[in-house]
Amino acid sequence: MTTEKNPTPQQIKDKDFDLIQAINSGEVDKFQDLVKRYEAKLYNFSLRMCRDPSDAEDMIQDTFLNVFRYLKNFRYETKFKNWLYKVAASTCFKKRRKSKFAPDKELSLEEFLPNDEAEKPDHVPQWALMPLDKLLNEELAGVINKTIITLPKKYRMVILLRDIEGFSTTESAQILNLSPSNVKVRLHRARLYLREKLKGYFENDR
């Protein structure tokens, strides 16, 4: 007879643990506090996912309603924040609304390959060298947000989670039910896409 048992999965006691415990043990009106904690983060995430502000509002509402519905099943196996984004991502993917801005096409690595010999740069462009805080003004932030929205959804979701929200590769993979290598592939293409657009912006506008 073996003494080995299924180890009980470790519970992650993050900053939301106590609040969720309270909600799940009957203090449901505290759910508003949980919403308050995350509404601004989710608002920005949804705006970047949906582009249309009213779609973004729908996405946040649906996400929080789903969170409320399923909170009893939350087992603290990840941080609550990660679970919240998982709910948000699946809420967003279920809305099968086709975006006219970002058709769901594949991005291939080939389309971003460095230019031909003839066009190869012989120096690093200024925008990659100057201090970041001098470079990143409101206009550029707008360009970045607008460019991200033109990415096909599956790439957009990954670059948002990794580079905007700051989740790790492993966390993003869990949130999206993808393999880590799949996350990496999508992230790389999304970044290369954005880099191309930024290059265009800096070369044409200055």
Binding site: W127, A128, L136, I159, D163, L194, L198
Partner: peptide, 9 residues
């Protein structure tokens, strides 16, 4: 330029 793209995001 790719590093910069990531840093901007």
């Amino acid at each position: 330029t790719l590093k910069r793209t990531v840093a901007l995001c």
